[in-house]
């Protein structure tokens, strides 16, 4: 946790009014999203598939797929504007100050080279290490990622390593340049649960030691709950709720957050009731006059459907996009144990 006596850390990344279009000018998949990440802070993004969470992350990395483009808003990384940044500018940021890990580590490594070479190459090319130093540093980094017998791992090819080992290698490459911001997009989703726990512990250690800020995207609320200081809830391209993780998950204020919590695995092993959210989210880019969640919301009124709803700052420091935020009493994760988690 990035707690310091000096109060909140300085803002590292500031995204303001971000809009991203996909497959043509008209289809807006991210619709005016704003958030900040402070130095050393872990911010989680949750939402269903198609909610725009991955697009938002990719725009911060400058790796939007062809056909996708930032159509509005600003992204500021420590004083540098990332929207429209030329290639040379990206080269100085990506892989050094901003790094990323994704769900499928195997597809980010070259299958024809030993993994250690790929890590050492990064150290040589990006960070100017001499060949021999790069090798020694690479082995030490692999060891620091908790890899058993790093000398041997150094010489192994991607196909010889398990998913958890590959994800550690990719993490080693990501943190090799001592980045300030790490984007982890479903980075532990494909891992076995015991390995996921180890990788999350590794990430927590990296944060503590290096003051690394992390944006973690996951569909698994429990992973976010464990790892992140703050959480952003995306729905159909918009931010619907944001705030401190424990507060949001234990006392959600947007009906969608409540619905997500109801269907999520909450780590309770009693036979849980399998709740569902009825209906489907609106099509990507659909233009609706009112709240985008209204059709699936149990609390929606006529007004909700006809007039747009703004994201409003709440007195408790959270932001909620709901017209009825002050009237609704919503329940969070594990109301029974809420007392134990109120911290």
């Amino acid at each position: 946790m990035p707690e310091s006596a000096a109060g909140p850390a300085e803002v590292l990344l500031k995204v303001d009014g971000l809009r991203i279009t996909v497959g043509g000018e008209r289809t807006e998949a991210v619709r005016g999203v704003s958030f900040e990440v402070r130095r050393g802070e872990a911010v989680g993004i949750v939402g269903e598939s198609g909610s725009g969470k991955t697009l938002a992350c990719r725009s911060v990395l400058g790796v939007l797929a062809p056909g996708c483009a930032v159509s509005g808003g600003t992204i500021d990384f420590d004083g540098t504007s990332l929207v429209g940044l030329p290639r040379r500018g990206w080269e100085q940021l990506r892989g050094t100050r901003i790094a990323a890990v994704f769900q499928d580590p195997a597809s980010y490594l070259n299958p024809s080279y030993p993994v250690g070479h790929q890590l050492a190459e990064q150290l040589r090319v990006k960070h100017g290490r001499a060949r021999r130093d790069a090798r020694a540093d690479a082995v030490r980094l692999l060891a620091a990622m908790g890899l058993h017998d790093p000398e041997r791992v150094y010489r192994q090819y991607p196909h010889q390593l398990s998913g958890g080992m590959l994800q550690r290698v990719v993490l080693a490459i990501a943190v090799s340049g001592d980045p300030e911001l790490l984007i982890a997009d479903e980075a532990t989703t494909a891992l076995d649960v015991t390995i996921q726990a180890e990788v999350l512990e590794l990430l927590a250690g990296l944060r503590a030691e290096r003051g690394l800020a992390v944006i973690a995207v996951s569909h698994d609320l429990a992973v976010i709950a464990e790892f992140c200081d703050r959480v952003l809830v995306f729905y159909a391209g918009e931010l619907v709720e944001a705030g401190p993780t424990q507060a949001v998950l234990h006392a959600p204020r947007h009906p969608y957050t409540e619905a997500l919590l109801r269907v999520a695995s909450v780590g309770s092993w009693e036979r849980r009731s399998l709740a569902v959210i009825d209906g489907q989210p609106p099509h990507v880019g659909a233009e609706l006059p009112g709240c985008r969640f209204a059709d699936r919301c149990a609390f929606a009124t006529q007004q909700c459907r006809t007039r747009p709803v703004a994201l409003t700052e709440q007195p408790d420091g959270r932001s909620v996009r709901c017209r009825r935020v002050d009237e609704l009493a919503l329940s969070g994760a594990g109301a029974a144990t809420a007392a134990g988690a109120a911290s």
Partner: peptide, 16 residues
């Protein structure tokens, strides 16, 4: 396995 599963209440990392 069970101690490693993430928990919305915050897993006890020591347990795993």
């Amino acid at each position: 396995l069970i101690a490693s599963a993430p928990d919305i209440h915050g897993r006890d990392r020591h347990a795993a």
